[in-house]
Design a binder for these strands. Structure first.
Lengths: 348, 348
DNA sequence: AGTACTTTCGTGTTCGATAACGAATCTTTT
DNA sequence: AAAAGATTCGTTATCGAACACGAAAGTACT
């Protein structure tokens, strides 16, 4: 039961060597004979040795530094929530000699991501949290991080095999599937519209497309007869494109957006007096919540951005400071918010 | 900016005394002259001294022990979720020389709570997590804990002014209000039924009654014309009481239960072929979820039992080991689960 | 002034992991 | 076989807080 807390000296005694040698073995440092090494490793495997974190922390007079790479933000947008989580982690970790700083990039401009990435590498932090953009540039940065031996966590958008310490975010495919289910399950409509963002450089593509794939999967499986109109919009082209859409298809009453800017569509619909049967979007921006409460938007899918960044930094700290291996993937819940429960929603 | 991490020696130097004296002042130990004390206190106030947690942890060779007092449980009931949270905290905190053990009591039997409380006090733990029963007995135990100088957190049910370190749980009144809103808002029915538990000793009363108060508050404000039938049931009397209810009021189509055993009512309704317009209950027991998916229950209100106990123990550890003052109240979100989103719900 | 006693406070050791230092042992070279 | 060099590994100081120990300073009383 009471598995004794072994110290390094206990182990040394068990092995018939000194504490220094045990330490060398544990850290893979050189200067240990094969024989000693094997003996120590055998004992280490046998007992479940958990080093005293306090002693480690005290001995390592080191000051750790984590850097967060994520899009520049303004008040109340999605990325400001991410920043909230960072602030919380910062406060909590300052006592462990961990400081956190941020580098921002412009989500619309891949070059800014690349140069922000360079800046990140130059800082040589002890850990990094990054929000991906396109697959290629993200993998490129990931490669550089690995070369520089900087552990990193990815949040928000899953990137396959980037060598990250952990991914923290939603299962985008699944959330798209749920969006479709909620939108289409009990509706008799035969057409719907997908509001897509019209990015020149396609930087958001990974996440948006896997949400869309999940969405289409449901359609393929459950209601393959539905007609999907895709409209690519930017803030500038929104009016024109939607005017055209409703001129051509006046009966569309179902809509979904895979980005966080459903409020722009909602604004248009409200202004034009167009009532949708159902309209679903992502993320709990205050503007989105406003339209949800007013009934223009029917459902918002939340993905806990603040929790994501908080967890990401905690995972980095666990790994670098406390030598714990975090879970490879930490999926966030897929929160479904409606006018009913939005008031009582708390992101923890 | 870079506010230097002061050590006790830095402070000693600043004050012109030794580290020992500074330590004595900080811990309020005796043996310090008024003059020295004032000087040290002045400096301490001036700089924002945060002692090194690692050094504290290392120096304190103490082994901490927390005790959790909560109802005995069987597989898949509400309290088993509470236990899950405890297990998680246990794992996480074992490295800090914190061990956790549990004492259970029978929720139906107040005497067992009292004797479990005595046992708890005898153990003299460094912290305790308790689930209240009746107001009187809970306050009694709280008093004893205070006398024994054992910090404690209360979960699940708020108890006013018990002297707890922190309360972690839902705002029951509010959740009752939401239940009413969801049940009654868009319904044209004029009568409904409240399924109440028929406890001899009334041990659950605090929570259930504040949920009910919140529920009635909504009725008073928004639909005072509705007729509420109250039925007090136990597993034994359920059939008889409900038979009687539906004989007298065949048109009841709305129902709410404030405890976690809505599945018993659902089972009855399904067997009798009675279809409710809406049926709302509490807690995500597997049985409840089953009836939610089948459409017999329309909504379940989740209160994150595992997160509650996890947080409660973490708060105790923060306080006793890391000398941090936790928030006095930590409200849990009021999760609203329906057939739509139950599948994607994750309790974090 | 000297003894007895209390108050005040500095010093030294402890906690466990870490890594620099240098001693001891083993290997290679001339 | 001796010297030089390389490998292996034990010893020790360090990190910052805590607290016991006992030294120094202060007070009281004969």
């Amino acid at each position: 039961m009471e598995d004794k807390q072994y110290t390094i000296k206990d182990i040394a005694k068990l092995c018939g060597v000194s504490a220094g040698t045990v330490d060398r073995v544990m850290h893979g440092r050189s200067g240990v004979s094969q024989k000693s090494k094997e003996k120590v490793e055998a004992i280490l495997k046998e007992i479940d040795y958990k080093p005293n974190v306090f002693a480690i922390g005290l001995a390592a007079k080191k000051h750790y530094n984590m850097t967060c790479l994520f899009p520049e933000f303004s008040e109340n947008d999605y990325w400001s929530s991410v920043y909230e989580g960072i602030k919380r982690a910062k406060e909590e970790l300052s006592q462990y000699n961990i400081s956190i700083n941020c580098i921002h990039f412009n989500y619309e401009d891949i070059d800014s991501f690349t140069s922000a990435g360079k800046q990140l590498i130059e800082q040589k932090p002890d850990g990094a949290m990054i929000v991906p953009t396109t697959l290629y540039t993200t993998l490129q940065l990931a490669e550089e991080l690995k070369n520089a031996d900087i552990p990193f966590t990815i949040i928000d958008v899953a990137v396959k095999d980037a060598g990250e310490l952990t991914y923290i975010g939603q299962d985008s495919f699944r959330s798209g599937y749920i969006a479709a289910k909620t939108l289409l399950r009990t509706s008799s409509n035969t057409e719907m519209v997908m509001f897509l963002s019209d990015n020149r450089n396609g930087s958001l593509e990974i996440q948006m497309s896997s949400r869309r794939e999940g969405f289409m999967e449901y359609i393929r499986k459950e209601c393959s007869n539905i007609v999907v109109h895709e409209v690519k919009i930017t803030p500038e082209t929104l009016h024109e494109k939607l005017d055209k859409l409703f001129a051509e298809h006046p009966n569309v009453k179902l809509g979904v957006s895979f980005n966080s800017r459903i409020y722009r569509v909602a604004k248009y619909l409200e202004e034009k007096g167009i009532a949708f049967e159902r309209l679903i979007g992502y993320d709990l921006l205050p503007q989105n919540i406003e339209y949800l409460k007013r009934g223009v938007v029917n459902m918002l899918i939340g993905q806990r951005p603040a929790l994501q960044s908080y967890r990401a930094i905690k995972a980095l700290a666990d790994f670098t400071v406390f030598k714990k291996q975090p879970e490879k993937i930490q999926y966030m819940p897929i929160d479904l918010l409606t006018a009913d429960n939005i008031e009582y929603y708390i992101e923890i």
